[in-house]
Computed example of a mutant assay.
Amino acid sequence: MRALLIIDMQLGSFRPYELRYDTFAVIDRINRLSEAFRKNGDLVIFIQHDGTKENCFLPGTEDWSLLPELIRGPADIFVSKTANDSFY
């Protein structure tokens, strides 16, 4: 089994959308790739930064939320992290 990690695709990192290079094309590629993983029975894991220690990206706030254009599946896994490095 394989897993796709989608890391830090949160609203607070993409304000405003216009300042990020190719934002909507990146989101489209993530959605196509995640749909392929789901169709194959593989895992899709969303990793969100919890910046409680830094007083930003607070769980439940708009900045912490995933980009609304990202497709989520019922079996997707959501993980919160407190270090800037997902692999720390």
Rank of each mutant, 00 (worst) to 15 (best):
G12I: 04
I30P: 07
I6Y: 00
I30D: 02
D22I: 06
A25I: 04
G12A: 10
I45T: 13
G41E: 08
L5G: 11
F37R: 08
F14L: 09
I27K: 06
I45K: 10
R20A: 09
F14G: 01
N31Q: 11
F46S: 09
E18R: 13
A36S: 06
R38H: 14
R29S: 10
Q10C: 01
E35R: 15
L11Y: 03
L33C: 15
L11F: 00
F14C: 06
D8Q: 07
E35V: 12
A25Q: 11
R38V: 09
V26N: 12
E35K: 14
D28E: 12
V44W: 09
Y21A: 07
N31V: 04
L5P: 00
V26A: 07
T23F: 15
N40Q: 11
R20G: 01
R15L: 08
N40D: 13
T23C: 12
G12R: 03
A36F: 00
A25F: 10
G41N: 15
Y21K: 01
F37Q: 12
E18K: 14
I7N: 06
F46D: 05
D28L: 10
R29M: 13
R20E: 05
G12C: 03
A25P: 03
R38Y: 15
R38L: 04
E18C: 10
F37G: 07
A36I: 01
I7K: 13
Y21H: 09
D28F: 06
I27Q: 00
K39D: 05
I45W: 09
D22G: 12
L11N: 15
V26C: 09
R38D: 11
D28N: 10
K39I: 01
L19S: 12
L43A: 14
R38I: 08
V26T: 13
L43S: 15
K39A: 14
P16N: 14
I45R: 06
R38C: 08
L5S: 00
D22F: 04
I7M: 05
L43K: 15
L5F: 15
G41A: 09
R32M: 10
A36N: 08
M9V: 02
F46R: 01
I7R: 14
G12V: 05
V44C: 04
L19I: 03
I45G: 12
L33F: 02
R38K: 11
D28K: 15
R38M: 09
